[in-house]
Computed example of a mutant assay.
Amino acid sequence: MALIRWEPLREIETLHRDMNRLFDRLLSSDGGEGVGLSFVPAAEMEETNDAIHLKLEVPGLEPKDINVEVTAESVSISGERKSETRIEDNGITRSEFRYGRFERVIPLPSHIQNDKVHAEYKNGILSLTLPKAEEEKHKVVKVNIG
């Protein structure tokens, strides 16, 4: 029986490579595992007495590439970041940008008037102002103390 030398650093490198390959497949736009989502835009939400203010970070997109759908309870943002493929002289192209479609559904903390939503897109930030429904503005809840 032969002795095998244990090399922990090599095993860590192999694990690192395997984890990178797993995440690349899950996030690839060609759908390595059928997921096909390139990125999920970061969001920031602020609630005031009259409205909910929602900001999403979607850099590198044109407003025509973004689809926003609003119900009384949630906001759905989807779109696609299209790639511009360039082939260099030696035939190798390297890109760390993520391309492909994305979708995010954000539940809202209170009901809104979805026919009065205001949207603005500037410098890669999509800002939505979602006015609250009238019954939500004046809603008072009595709390029973047991």
Rank of each mutant, 00 (worst) to 15 (best):
E84G: 08
E84R: 15
E84F: 11
T85M: 14
R86V: 15
R86L: 13
R86S: 11
R86Q: 10
R86I: 14
I87R: 11
I87P: 02
I87V: 15
I87K: 11
I87F: 12
I87D: 02
E88K: 12
E88G: 07
E88W: 14
D89S: 13
D89Q: 10
D89V: 09
D89W: 09
D89A: 14
D89F: 10
D89K: 13
N90H: 14
N90T: 06
G91C: 02
G91I: 04
G91R: 08
I92Y: 09
I92C: 01
I92M: 09
I92D: 08
T93Q: 08
T93P: 01
T93Y: 13
R94D: 07
R94M: 12
R94E: 13
R94F: 12
R94C: 01
S95G: 08
S95V: 11
S95R: 11
S95P: 03
S95A: 08
E96M: 03
E96C: 00
E96K: 00
E96G: 04
E96D: 08
F97N: 15
F97G: 15
F97W: 11
F97M: 14
R98N: 11
R98F: 09
Y99H: 12
Y99C: 01
Y99S: 06
Y99V: 09
G100W: 05
G100S: 05
G100M: 07
G100P: 01
G100C: 07
R101W: 10
R101M: 08
R101F: 08
R101N: 06
R101Y: 07
F102P: 03
F102H: 03
E103P: 00
E103D: 07
E103L: 09
E103M: 08
E103N: 12
E103H: 12
E103V: 11
R104A: 10
R104S: 08
R104T: 13
R104F: 06
R104N: 07
R104G: 02
R104D: 05
V105D: 11
V105W: 01
V105C: 06
V105A: 10
V105I: 15
I106Y: 02
I106R: 03
I106C: 05
I106N: 05
P107T: 09
P107A: 11
P107Q: 10
P107K: 08
L108Y: 01
L108Q: 00
L108T: 01
L108P: 00
L108V: 04
P109G: 04
P109L: 05
P109N: 05
P109W: 02
P109A: 06
S110E: 10
S110K: 07
S110Y: 03
H111E: 12
H111Y: 08
H111K: 13
H111D: 04
I112R: 04
I112Y: 02
I112P: 02
I112H: 03
I112C: 02
Q113G: 00
Q113T: 07
Q113P: 00
Q113E: 14
Q113S: 10
Q113C: 06
Q113I: 04
N114G: 01
N114V: 00
N114E: 13
N114P: 06
N114I: 00
N114Y: 12
N114F: 09
D115F: 04
D115P: 01
D115H: 09
D115M: 03
K116Q: 14
K116W: 03
K116N: 10
K116I: 00
V117Y: 03
V117P: 03
V117W: 03
V117T: 09
V117H: 04
V117L: 04
H118Q: 15
H118R: 14
H118G: 01
H118P: 00
